[in-house]
């Protein structure tokens, strides 16, 4: 059965976020990321968290699905947080213990705890925000489309923008297929007694050969068949190609871009004027 991969997992609800121009969404995500890294004040984080929650609600993507997308990254989030608890030096010492005499003392400060929480929050809202706009509410093809149009001026200096976008589309299209295929091949080899989980590094690497070779062979076969199918449908690169969905910025897209910029400005203002706890 297909693994759940966040990439390419479009969840169509037809909400206003889904209908925004991908270029506007790209711009939003850009300002959103900048905002997150500019944010220092607790209130700024709270504000950005609100933006994310509002986005999820407006997009009507089930919150459960969005949270599930975070699951593979829980370890990373925990790791950075824990690291922060131990490494941050602040003023209010909560706990201290000498683990190895004269060599290693663990000091936990209140600031360390708050920093850890805020950093975890930063990663979580970053992931949730980008995945709502990029994965759940924008089809990969819209995204590549947005990039293709957004970068169109580069064609003039012979950057193969169309070819690149087409490659990306096909890659995205085939990720779920190849994941399914990998699982099938793994199961088939397990049925022949393959063991991927015991033994040393070399043994494990060797055990992967019966998976990688069939996967390569079938990918080449798929690529060849797909190329023929595309040829049959008169594909000949980007020249003279029209599109069904022509991207056209509407008023709502301009409004949205304006809001994105307001968000960034808001975060900067909160940073300067608010009196909440500030990230070290």
């Amino acid at each position: 059965m297909a693994l759940d991969v966040t990439i390419g997992q479009y969840y169509g609800t037809g909400s206003v976020i889904h209908r925004l121009d991908p270029r506007a969404k790209l711009l939003f995500v850009l300002t959103f990321i900048v905002s997150i890294f500019v944010a220092k004040d607790v209130y700024a984080f709270a504000f950005l968290a609100l933006v994310v929650i509002a986005s999820v609600l407006i997009s009507r993507v089930p919150i459960r699905l969005v949270l599930k997308g975070l699951k593979p990254l829980v370890i990373i989030i925990l790791f950075t947080s824990v690291l922060n608890i131990f490494l941050t030096r602040g003023e209010e010492l909560l706990f201290t213990k000498e683990i190895i005499k004269d060599f290693w003392t663990v000091n936990i400060y209140k600031e360390g705890l708050i920093n850890a929480a805020l950093l975890a929050l930063r990663i979580i809202i970053l992931l949730m925000g980008t995945s709502v706009y990029f994965s759940y509410a924008t089809t990969p093809i819209e995204l590549t489309d947005g990039l293709e149009r957004g970068l169109a001026p580069l064609k003039k200096i012979k950057v193969p923008v169309h070819e690149f976008a087409m490659m990306m589309t096909i890659a995205l299209r085939f990720i779920p297929t190849l994941i399914d295929e990998t699982i099938k091949i793994m199961n088939a080899q397990k049925a022949r007694g393959a063991d991927f989980s015991t033994g040393g590094l070399i043994k494990r690497a060797k055990a992967l050969i019966p998976i990688i070779i069939p996967l390569f062979v079938s990918s080449f076969r798929r690529a060849e068949e797909l190329a023929t199918a595309m040829e049959c449908r008169c594909y000949h690169g980007g020249n003279g190609r029209t599109r069904m969905n022509v991207l056209k910025m509407k008023i709502r897209d301009y409004v949205f871009i304006f809001l994105s910029l307001t968000m960034l400005a808001g975060v900067i203002l909160i940073n300067i004027y608010a009196n909440g706890y500030k990230l070290l």
């Binding site: 390419g8 479009y10 089809t139 093809i141 299209r173 595309m230």
Partner: peptide
């Protein structure tokens, strides 16, 4: 059917 569909929608 898998090897002739190009797009994700």
């Amino acid at each position: 059917p898998d090897n002739q569909i190009v797009a994700t929608i």
